[in-house]
């Protein structure tokens, strides 16, 4: 029994668990918008594109999160610009831009080593997070939570029906930018927990999980945030015992929860859909089956 409590005796473990939970929750909150807006790929791109900012911030002596945030925004703007000028498909543009930014980051980091080494940035190292870095994460998380709780309805309307949002006088360019800024900010915050490679999982998986469990956006936000935070806490805690990568633990846990829900969700789960299909085949003619498949 006392063995289970040992992680809490270490200061660094306690910090890691709490910070992971916080970041997990904030990313999960945002993930509801990202999954519904179809920005999952964008999340992946931004989490890689912030890397050169970390290095540049170190060179000029700014907090790393400021540099990373600016790099994220610039990358998003570059994507918008290239897309407009080239007429290429969005996935091609994202592919070109984010790899260039990431490559630039790798180059800079190899030439000018910063306080965060390459391995930390790419794979995360929450166990070694310094107090000033924790402060940065707290500030980013705090601002994100405040903005999201105040503006989630506007963001929801923007994701759902941009034309209507504009027609009733919402500033949709601002909302677009706001969502991008939040995405960059949380990607930066999650960088040290799970690393640039796995940030996208934190920004997509909890939202995808919650989507399968409910048809109401309000509930989706709650389910997603709770799942994200719990996976963050439990993943960091479990990593102590299996002596594995914290980021890896958190994301594997999130994936397990997702798979569980994918099969067992009461309405949209694979098993219940199969059951529904069997019932309708027994009682209804062919046309009805198609319909119930669409409805769910």
């Amino acid at each position: 029994m006392t063995d289970l409590l040992t992680p809490f005796e270490y200061d660094y473990m306690l910090k890691a668990i709490l910070v992971s939970g916080l970041i997990g929750g904030v990313c999960a909150f945002l993930s509801c918008f990202i999954t519904l807006k179809g920005w999952s790929l964008m999340g992946d791109a931004l989490s890689h594109a912030v890397v050169p900012g970390v290095s540049l911030a170190w060179i000029v002596g700014l907090p790393f999160s400021v540099g990373a945030f600016i790099a994220g925004i610039l990358a998003a703007l570059t994507m918008g610009w290239v897309k407009k000028k080239s007429g290429l498909r969005e996935d091609a543009v994202i592919g070109v831009v984010f790899t260039s930014w990431f490559a630039l980051g790798l180059l800079l980091l190899s030439l000018y080593p910063s306080h965060l080494n390459l391995k930390t940035i790419i794979f995360g190292n929450i166990l070694a997070i310094s107090d000033p870095d924790i402060l940065q994460v707290l500030i980013i998380a705090g601002i994100s939570i405040i903005v999201l709780t105040m503006k989630w309805r506007d963001l929801l309307l923007y994701c759902f029906d941009e034309a209507h949002a504009r027609a009733i006088g919402l500033n949709t360019s601002f909302l677009h930018f706001l969502l991008l800024a939040l995405l960059s900010a949380t990607a930066v915050a999650a960088l040290q927990t799970v690393g640039a490679c796995l940030v996208v999982a934190m920004l997509v998986t909890p939202g995808a999980t919650a989507y399968l469990l409910t048809d109401r956006f309000g509930k989706m936000l709650i389910i997603s945030t709770v799942t994200g935070a719990l996976c963050g806490v439990c993943g960091a805690y479990a990593s102590y015992f299996i002596n594995g990568s914290t980021g890896g633990c958190i994301v594997v846990l999130q994936t397990l929860v997702f798979l569980l829900v994918l099969f067992l969700a009461p309405k949209h789960g694979i098993l219940s859909l199969r059951k529904l299909r069997r019932q309708t085949t027994q009682t209804m003619p062919q046309s009805r089956i198609e319909k119930s498949g669409c409805a769910s």
């Binding site: 519904l36 929801l156 309307l157 994701c159 759902f160 029906d161 209507h164 009733i168 989507y211 409910t214 048809d215 109401r216 956006f217 989706m220």
Partner: peptide, 12 residues
């Protein structure tokens, strides 16, 4: 999209 009829009308 996970919104109900009520939610959509409320958007008005």
């Amino acid at each position: 999209f996970p919104v109900s009829v009520w939610d959509v009308v409320m958007m008005g």
